[in-house]
């Protein structure tokens, strides 16, 4: 048992993650061709616009389920909404944000784009602290909009006229996943601008612009889109009570900032917070690179059902960071 634990702690989890992501990508992007349908309430961007999708991103059914009149909320509609959310919650409670770091196909694509940039030796961008704090709010705004707009399509909000149906489903219209993921199954039909109405034109054009920004943005900034992802905001609800956790033994932290340095999203609290034990923040994707980069024995620890499964160790750190760059 001790040996197994030491083996895991000293392992290179990034490499494991790389292959795991490929497997998850195949599952979520091509799984449909093998008649795989995992669930329709997945907390990851398994885009249903992609014909081969092995599941459905929860944001799609969520928007559909919210697209109903008030009266239907107290009735079958409300029950469906609740049931859907419960299924989603189960996924969220078990794996928490690891959905983002290990399973999300759109996240995987961004990681691949990052790999391409590394090969080209172009440096990455990092946000300043204030910019970061400002930008990270966008995901909550998007989440709010994706809840309120479907309601506004079927109901009159604040005595305003109902929104045009062309805006629906609002997030999918601007989500790069809708455009990018079908490309992997050779489907370019999502690249279009709908000129039928002004709303449709705006939304589809916005979708194209966001996709363009997605490609360039994730080339220069690691996990560019994740900072704006409303799914990440939605999953954050469960991170405090989830079974899979990232804990910080704050007494052991030297605040060297290694964890912050390797963080793809750029969470500063991971290095600076010496008060909270549960260190999963709203932008975190549980990629566990921070655990890898921590040289303090047992300072950062991943636990599942309160059983530590992976923790930072000195030996592990040296194996991953130092011995591999010995001078030749």
């Amino acid at each position: 048992m001790k040996k197994i634990r030491a083996f895991i702690n000293n392992s290179n989890i990034s490499k494991f993650r790389f292959y795991f992501q490929i497997a998850a990508f195949v599952l979520f992007v091509y799984g449909g061709y093998f008649y795989v349908t995992i669930s329709e309430k997945l907390p990851t961007f398994a885009c249903p616009f992609n014909k081969g999708s092995g599941g459905t991103c929860y944001l799609m059914p969520l928007q559909h389920q919210l697209h109903m009149t008030w009266s239907r909320f107290i009735g079958p509609g409300g029950i469906h909404l609740l049931k859907g959310f419960l299924v989603f919650a189960c996924f969220g409670l078990v794996f928490s944000k690891a959905w983002c770091g290990y399973l999300c196909p759109l996240g995987t694509i961004q990681d691949w784009i990052t790999k391409l940039r590394k090969v080209l030796h172009i440096r990455f961008s990092k946000y300043g602290e204030t910019t970061f704090k400002g930008l990270k709010k966008i995901k909550y705004i998007l989440l709010f909009l994706l809840i309120i707009i479907p309601l506004g399509v079927s109901n009159s909000l604040l005595w305003l006229p109902k929104f045009s149906h062309d805006i629906f489903p609002p997030f999918c219209k601007i989500c790069p996943g809708r455009i990018v993921l079908p490309l992997f199954t050779g489907d370019t039909s999502q690249i279009y601008i709908d000129f039928s109405t002004k709303t449709a034109m705006t939304m589809t054009a916005l979708g194209m612009i966001v996709t363009g920004i997605f490609f360039t943005g994730s080339f220069f900034k690691k996990r560019f889109f994740c900072l704006f992802c409303p799914m990440s905001a939605l999953l954050y609800i469960f991170s405090k009570v989830a079974i899979l956790r990232l804990n910080k033994n704050v007494a052991k932290c030297t605040r060297c900032g290694n964890c912050y340095r390797v963080c793809d999203v750029g969470i500063k609290e991971i290095a600076d917070d010496v008060i909270n034990k549960n260190i999963v923040k709203d932008d975190c994707m549980l990629c566990l690179k921070c655990v890898e980069a921590c040289p303090e024995e047992g300072c950062l620890e991943v636990s599942f059902f309160n059983i530590p499964v992976f923790m930072s160790t000195e030996t592990g750190f040296f194996k991953r960071y130092c011995l591999r760059n010995e001078i030749k």
């Binding site: 590394k118 440096r123 990455f124 060297c256 290694n258 390797v262 690179k289 960071y321």
Partner: peptide, 26 residues
Amino acid sequence: LYDMVAVDEWSLYDMIPAIADRYLKP
């Protein structure tokens, strides 16, 4: 000699700030 340098990308733009951080933050 206690605090370690960890780098995400072995490029100068990441290594130099990483080294700088190691000599300031801890």
